[in-house]
Every structure is written in structure tokens, then in C-alpha cells.
């Protein structure tokens, strides 16, 4: 190891510390992770910091969690049952029916019946994307927002509405009540227009899909089980 390598090694050591503390930007962190997979020395730097900083967390005295927590974890992992309130778990309180009724949006969905038309296609350069998934993988929907057209391309890859029911897509932004983005059609792919006032709220939001009566929620808020959810991320 020549002296010329020293500054780089020092820089990598510091960079690994910044990564372990969560101080890098998303881009920097992604670049660091890409290097981690192929640079053992960098992995060693990171591991050293992770070990040291974990001791800080260990200042916290251990505390036995309530007994129901393990049962709930087992339900989430090992049973096919739907979790009771995915919305609550991802941090958005379920709003009582009626409270959010002002947010009712008409869910206009155009079902394309022409079998020769490939239907909507995923935007080439989406501004935001989301993977909306059920815990057990029974419903998987990929969404991509086209900043130019203002439309949300939605591709239902796995799962479907139950007979006589519909799947409804919701935007959860901040602490506001969920806002409907529309009912998913029978066709697996659809483009849903996103109203102007919602576009800037996609960032940092969450998409969720609920089980609703045919035609969508009668109240403007989710009434059935929340089947799937996924965060909206920048591309």
C-alpha cells in the first residue's frame, strides 16, 4: 500500500461512517451500496462502523414487548388472513366514514374492450413509481406516474377483485384522509388521470388498494379491507 492510497482509504472510511449514520443522500447511498457489493475493504469499513454505532443503541435497556406482538407477527407472516388495518400500520389513521366525504372523487375508468389494442403502456420515463403489494403476495400492482401527461399507469400483475366486488386505488398523503384515484377495471392495465391538485402530493405518499362494493366505495373513503399498499418513490 503506497502513501498515495491513504487519502482514499481515509475517505472511504469516513464515507462508510456517513453511510452507517444515514447521512448520505439517496443517490450517494445508492452509489455506496453498489460499491459495497464489490469492494470487501469498503464492506469492512461499514461493518466496523455498524458494530460501533450499534453499541450506542444498546444503551437502551431491554424491555419485554407485550405478548400479542409475536401473535400478530406470526399472523402477518404465516397465515393467509388479511392484516386488520394495513393503513394503520403504515402510519395513516383510518378515517371514520363521513369525515372525509368532501374528498370524494368521481372514479372514471375507461375499460378498453378492443382486444387488438395493447391498451395503456408504462411511461418510458415516469416521475414516480410504486409497487403496491399484499403482504402475502396475493395482489401485486405496479404503478408509474407520467409527469408529462399527468396520468398514473397502473398494471395489475397478480390478483383480482372478488366476484361482485371492485378494487379501488387510494392515495395517502401526509395525515389527510385517503383520496380515491379510481376503481381498477377488469383489464389488467389502465391509465388513471390524476387531478391537478393531487399531482404534487404523490411525492412521499403511499398507494393503497381496498376491497369495495362494485363501482367503488359509496362513501368516498375506504370501506372494505385494505388489501395492499406500497410507498411512492422518486425515480
Amino acid at each position: 500500500m503506497s502513501d498515495a492510497d491513504q487519502p482514499d482509504r481515509e475517505e472511504d472510511m469516513i464515507l462508510a461512517g456517513e453511510y452507517a449514520l444515514g447521512l448520505l443522500s439517496a443517490d450517494e447511498a445508492a452509489a455506496f451500496e453498489a460499491r459495497l457489493s464489490r469492494e470487501p475493504e469498503l464492506r469492512a469499513h461499514y461493518a466496523a462502523w455498524a458494530e460501533d454505532f450499534a453499541r450506542l443503541a444498546e444503551e437502551a435497556p431491554p424491555e419485554t414487548p407485550p405478548t400479542n406482538v409475536l401473535a400478530e407477527i406470526r399472523t402477518r407472516l404465516f397465515r393467509q388472513e388479511r392484516p386488520p388495518s394495513l393503513l394503520a400500520r403504515i402510519g395513516w389513521p383510518r378515517i371514520a366514514v363521513g369525515l372525509g366525504a368532501v374528498a370524494v372523487l368521481a372514479a372514471v375508468v375507461f375499460v378498453n374492450s378492443n382486444v387488438f389494442d395493447p391498451g395503456p403502456v408504462r411511461p418510458l420515463d415516469p416521475g414516480f413509481v410504486a409497487q403496491v403489494e399484499a403482504e402475502d403476495g396475493s395482489l401485486v400492482v405496479s404503478a408509474a406516474y407520467d409527469t408529462v401527461s399527468g396520468a398514473l399507469f397502473v398494471d395489475r400483475q397478480t390478483g383480482a377483485a372478488r366476484p361482485g366486488r371492485d378494487l379501488e386505488l387510494w392515495l395517502l398523503a401526509g395525515e389527510d384522509p385517503p383520496v380515491s384515484l379510481g376503481v381498477l377495471p377488469d383489464a389488467s392495465r389502465v391509465e388513471l388521470p390524476v387531478p391537478d391538485d393531487l399531482r404534487e402530493r404523490l411525492q412521499d405518499g403511499v398507494l393503497a388498494i381496498s376491497d369495495e362494493p362494485e363501482g367503488g366505495s359509496p362513501t368516498g373513503q375506504p370501506t372494505g379491507d385494505v388489501l395492499a399498499a406500497g410507498p411512492i418513490t422518486n425515480t
Binding site: 443503541a57 444498546e58 444503551e59 437502551a60 435497556p61 431491554p62 424491555e63 419485554t64 414487548p65 406482538v69 409475536l70 407477527i73 407472516l77
Partner: peptide, 20 residues
């Protein structure tokens, strides 16, 4: 094994989560 791991470390991890 998952259940045993939970018994072994859940109090420690719950302590960390409570602290943060």
C-alpha cells in the same frame, strides 16, 4: 427457530425501538 430468535432478542430490539 423464528420463535426462539424472537424470545432471545425481542426485548433488546424493543428497548432500542422505544429509545429511538
Amino acid at each position: 427457530a423464528f420463535q426462539r430468535l424472537y424470545s432471545s432478542v425481542s426485548a433488546k430490539l424493543f428497548g432500542v425501538l422505544l429509545r429511538v
